[in-house]
Design a binder for these strands. Structure first.
Lengths: 233, 233
DNA sequence: TATAAGCTTATTGTATGCAATATTGCATAC
DNA sequence: GTATGCAATATTGCATACAATAAGCTTATA
């Protein structure tokens, strides 16, 4: 797996911002930490020692603390005064609730997208879907994962609602550490693709209710898949 | 209007936390700033000078900067490197989008509440509603406002979904500066009460779809009311 | 031996000073 | 008269030192 060129987007949802701006130390550190949490290099429950991490990243504690505060606001870490921040480890119940909300948010995106996506956005979504078909044949989970994110992001954007995009992406990021393993369960890739197909068709038909319901099911299946993997059911 | 004893809740939604913990300077400052923004003492667009505010609050820039960062994460202020943070001033279009999402989130809360509220929660909601009836007769907008918040919060809690409560409250707080004036428009109090009544009945009946739709309408009416007040339509 | 109180140590919270960068005013050219 | 570039200034970004608090250990006592 290749190293990502840049970290997670801006905390409050991808302000475009010419984007080749010189980053502050705090932003760099935040991106690195967020990536490490999201793709599992830092496990839930793990404490983050300020002095230690600051030293290892070659910055002082000041920007590191600001980064940790941002992560706390994103829900990726939890802080208590005079204690080390720890990577968030939600209870199974809380995780279920988050998946449920995620399903509703994505369903809303899909519904709005079915009503409002522009022609070029629809075309783009089809292209992504075709790409997923090709990757499916190679059975390459990590490659599939990347394009899968794009598929969902394209639908978010299709809702034409920047705030909805913001909170949906934020929720998705927060759940990332717990969705990572889903594509490793047998046959999940193929099932995922079929579900995407139903969503795509509904959106292209402009069928809001069907798009929403297909998406809702898709996300809740992801949750099932996680719970199965994690041995929670 | 009396001074509030404590500021806004914890950034990531009211962790109960014994709550009589000694607050850090950064937390105190954040609460004060958040309150000042939410109830309009700091207007959208206004820059926040770190040195100046730190001095006026009697703290150093370090905790103040951390507080501002939290506010940025909440969406109450916007920051750019080497520029002063400014109180968020969303475009009319963005504001509309946020109201739309707010309506959907509250509708979801209402729907889940209709299905899942406990008996004591239902009873409590009725009591709040009766309180609103009494206040209505006195035509006291600021008093009505306080109990109105409780009415909505009770429905959020009734959803039995902590994460949904978290993002709904966060969205509500972010919209607060733009909902403040709503109860000043003629007859809004009485209309609001009637809308609440419809919502309450639907929830008590366990009618999810009706509860959702009543709530959705209620929130979008609030938006209308704001836009009218702001001269946007 | 178990327990609890007090001290010790490690870690976070805050203040302050310096560095880096954006803004402002002025000078100069067109 | 307007625009452009440079210098001066003000403000934020960062590092470091110190203060405050919580965790761990030691020791005394039942």
């Amino acid at each position: 797996m290749k190293k990502k060129p840049s970290g997670s987007e801006d905390i409050s949802a991808a302000k475009e911002e010419g984007s080749r701006r010189k980053l502050t130390r705090a932003e760099e550190v935040r991106a690195r930490l967020a990536d490490d949490i999201v793709d599992g290099k830092l496990s839930p429950g793990m404490p983050l020692d300020e002095t230690e991490i600051a030293a290892s990243y070659g910055v002082s504690r000041t920007p590191l603390r600001e980064a940790i505060r941002d992560l706390a606001a994103m829900g990726l870490v939890e802080t208590r005064p005079h204690r080390s921040a720890i990577v968030t480890r939600p209870s199974p119940e809380h995780l279920r609730q988050m998946f449920h909300v995620m399903a509703e948010l994505e369903a809303l995106c899909a519904s709005l997208a079915a009503a409002s996506m522009t022609l070029s956005e629809r075309r783009n979504l089809e292209i992504i879907h075709e790409g997923l078909a090709r990757i499916l044949k190679e059975n390459d989970p990590s490659h599939y994962h990347v394009l899968n994110e794009k598929f969902h992001a394209a639908i978010y954007a299709g809702s034409q609602n920047a705030y909805l995009v913001e909170i949906t992406l934020a929720t998705r990021r927060r759940l990332s550490p717990f969705r990572r393993a889903q594509f490793l369960t047998a046959g999940r890739l193929a099932k995922s693709y079929k579900e995407h197909d139903a969503i795509l068709v509904a959106i292209l038909q402009g069928n809001r209710e069907l798009a929403a319901e297909s998406m809702r099911r898709h996300i809740l299946t992801v949750e099932d898949s996680y719970e199965e993997y994690a041995g929670l059911k």
